[in-house]
Amino acid sequence: MAERRSHRDLRWWIAGAVVFLATFAGMVLVGGVAPDAATAGLSVAAASLVHLVARLFSVAEALARSEAEAVAMAGTGLARSTYRELLEEKRRVLAAIKELDFDHAMGKLSDADHRSIRARYERRAAEVLRALDEPASLHPWARALAETGRIPGEPEGGTAATEPSTPLRACPSCNGANDADARFCKHCGEKLAT
């Protein structure tokens, strides 16, 4: 989805450039205006007007979409982004461990501190790696959401959760959690009633 959106953005950029060149060329060749800075300025204004119209269209499009569609679009983005976030987290934790070892090697950290902090980072790294290995790796919040129905740290009546509109449903045969719109259970392959 994200790709498709960025492709669309690219299209608008190209459209803007085309409008700019067309306005400029049209005014110079047809209108007989001097190809000076003012003409270029007007062409830029025309191009940005096209961009503005495109953006207003996107707003209307977003409003015209049904809630389910919006959730679906957001969902695909979420899966991708969760994965990416986990990768980033992995990189960060590993870097932190390296830096810690380095600090220790340079004598800025006592052995005991080094051990205890390193242990903490290692636990975190293990968690992240496990999450990455799971096929449908979940964001910690998403996992918490699946287990407890609310996001950690969020007080009652909080407004954060935009995902709860995708209620998870249990598979009748294996009791595994599935997406609301799933047609087959992803744990046992049993067909789910729709």
């Binding site: 707003v59 977003a62 409003l63 979409r65 809630e67 919006a70 679009m73 957001a74 935009t162 509109s165």
Partner: peptide
């Protein structure tokens, strides 16, 4: 809690 309005 509407994804649609958030996106808008």
């Amino acid at each position: 809690r509407s994804e649609r309005w958030v996106e808008a």
